[in-house]
Design a protein around this nucleic acid. Structure first.
Lengths: 238, 238
DNA sequence: TATTTATTGTATCAATCCGTTACAATAATA
DNA sequence: TATTATTGTAACGGATTGATACAATAAATA
C-alpha cells in the first residue's frame, strides 16, 4: 500500500501546480490527506523505469482524468531543510500506518516543480489512495500548505507570467472556442493587471494566431461577440 | 577517494554550464577525465546536509576560484535513459578503480542544470581530483560530450537568451567597466544576431541602468568611447 | 415596429517607439 | 593642420500603441 523503495528512485520527487480557469478566477488543485490536517500539492515519486516527465503526467492523469495537458517544468527545489519527514509521518498516521524512522520516504527529498494548465470544466478531481480529498481553491485563498509548497505555487505563477505570450497558455485554460473577453480575462487574471479592451483586441488579432468562428448568442441584450479558437498551424509558426 | 554514498543523496546530481566571454566569443568550461576520453560538464553530487544551490556553488568555486558568480537554475533532466553508468565506469577505470556493479554512482541519476556567468579573464580553471583537465571551449566547437550534456548546453543557452534583458547578464560576463561596443558584442554573441549601433546605444541608455564613467583611451586614432558600469541600485528597481 | 440599453468591432488621431541616416565631436597620426 | 576611424546624438519617417469615438448589433421594452 505504501510506495515501495525498490520501485522508485530515492531522494527525488515532483510536485504539480495544477491550474484551471473558471471564467473569472484562477483555481488550483490542492490535496488534503486523511486525518492529518495536511494540505499539499499533488505530487509523487518517480518509478525506477520511468521518465521524470512521464511520472508527472501519470500523476496529473490519475487525479484529473485528462490525457492532453499542458505540462511545464519550472523549478527544482533543493533546500536541505525541506522537511517532509514530519508531514509524511502525520499522513501515514492518518492512514493508520507507522513508518519506521529509516523508511525511505522520510529521507530528504528534492522536488521538481511542474505546472499544468487544464480546462476547469472538463475535470472531475479524483483523490488518490493516500488523500481523502482533492479540491479546487481560489489561487488567492489557499489553506496553509505543507513544507515549502506555498513557495512552489509562487514560483509557478512567476513562471507562468513569464511564459504567457511565449507558450500557448490561453489555449489550455480556455475551452476550444472562447470570446475575446474571456481571453482577455485570462491574461488579466494571470498578470493581475487590466488591459484596455480595444488595444487588447487589436493586439490579439494582429498576432494572427486566432481563427474566428460563429457568434455566441448568450441571450443578453447586446451585440453578440464572435467565438475564436487558436489556429494551431499559425501558433506553431510563432 | 571516490564520493561516498553515506555523505550524499542518491539518484540526483547537478551539472553546470559555466560561460565566459573573451570580448569576442562565448566560451564554456569542459572537463576531460583521465584516460577515459570522456568530456563532461562540471558537475557533482549533493551532500546530505547541503542545499542544492550551495552544492553547485561549491562546485563552481572549486573549479574557478570565484566566490561571486551569477548562478541560475534552468532545467532538470530526468529521462530514464540518461545512461551515466557507462561513462562513470570508464572514468573510474581511467583512475585505476573498478566500481562494483551495485555502486551508487552507477545508478540512475536525475541532474539539475545550472548556468554560471563569469568573467573570463579572472579565472584560472582548476581540475578536480577526478578530471585531469578543465578547459575553455568555444561554444560552437565543443567536443562530443557524455550522456546528454550537449542537450544540457543547448537548453542553457536557450534559457540565457530568454533571461537576457531580464536578469543582469552582461554584468557577469563583462569586467566592472566596459564600453558600449563590448556590451553590444555580448548581446550579439548570445542572441547570435546583429544590432544597429545607434539603436542599441539609444536603447541601453534609455533603460537607465548604466553609469557613465571616464573615457577609455586605447591609443587608437579615433574618438575614445566612454566606459560604463551597471548601476546596481537602478538595476534592482527593474 | 420603433426605441432603448449594453456590449462589441473598428476607425481615427495622437503620442511614443524604433530603424535609418546624417553629422558633429573627437584621438591619434601623417 | 589635415586625415582617418570611431563614437555620441540629433533628426526624419514609418510602425506600434494608447485613447477616444462611433457605428453595429441582440434582446428587452415601449
Amino acid at each position: 500500500m505504501l510506495p515501495l523503495e525498490s520501485e522508485h528512485i530515492t531522494n527525488i520527487a515532483y510536485d504539480t501546480v495544477i491550474l484551471g480557469f473558471t471564467g473569472k478566477e484562477l483555481k488550483i488543485l490542492i490535496l488534503e490527506y486523511q486525518n492529518s490536517g495536511q494540505f499539499a500539492l499533488p505530487g509523487g515519486f518517480i518509478r525506477r523505469n520511468e521518465d521524470l516527465y512521464d511520472a508527472v503526467k501519470r500523476g496529473v492523469r490519475e487525479r484529473t482524468g485528462l490525457e492532453k495537458i499542458h505540462l511545464e517544468q519550472f523549478h527544482t527545489f533543493g533546500k536541505k531543510n525541506r522537511d517532509s519527514a514530519y508531514p509524511f509521518k502525520k499522513i501515514a498516521a492518518g492512514k493508520g500506518y507507522t513508518l519506521t524512522s529509516d523508511h525511505w520516504v522520510l529521507d530528504r527529498f528534492i522536488t521538481v516543480g511542474y505546472y499544468a494548465l487544464i480546462n476547469y470544466n472538463q475535470v472531475q478531481p479524483t483523490p488518490d489512495k493516500f488523500s481523502d480529498s482533492i479540491n479546487w481553491y481560489d489561487i488567492n485563498k489557499l489553506p496553509t500548505l505543507m513544507i515549502d509548497h506555498a513557495e512552489i505555487v509562487e514560483k509557478a505563477l512567476e513562471s507562468i507570467r513569464n511564459d504567457l505570450g511565449k507558450k500557448p497558455i490561453g489555449e489550455n485554460l480556455l475551452p476550444e472556442k472562447f470570446t475575446m473577453k474571456e481571453l482577455q480575462k485570462v491574461y488579466e487574471t494571470i498578470l493581475n493587471k487590466e488591459f484596455r479592451r480595444t488595444t487588447f483586441q487589436r493586439k490579439m488579432l494582429s498576432m494572427d494566431i486566432l481563427k474566428r468562428h460563429e457568434k455566441l448568442y448568450t441571450g443578453a441584450a447586446n451585440k453578440a461577440p464572435y467565438l475564436y479558437s487558436f489556429d494551431k498551424e499559425k501558433v506553431e509558426k510563432t
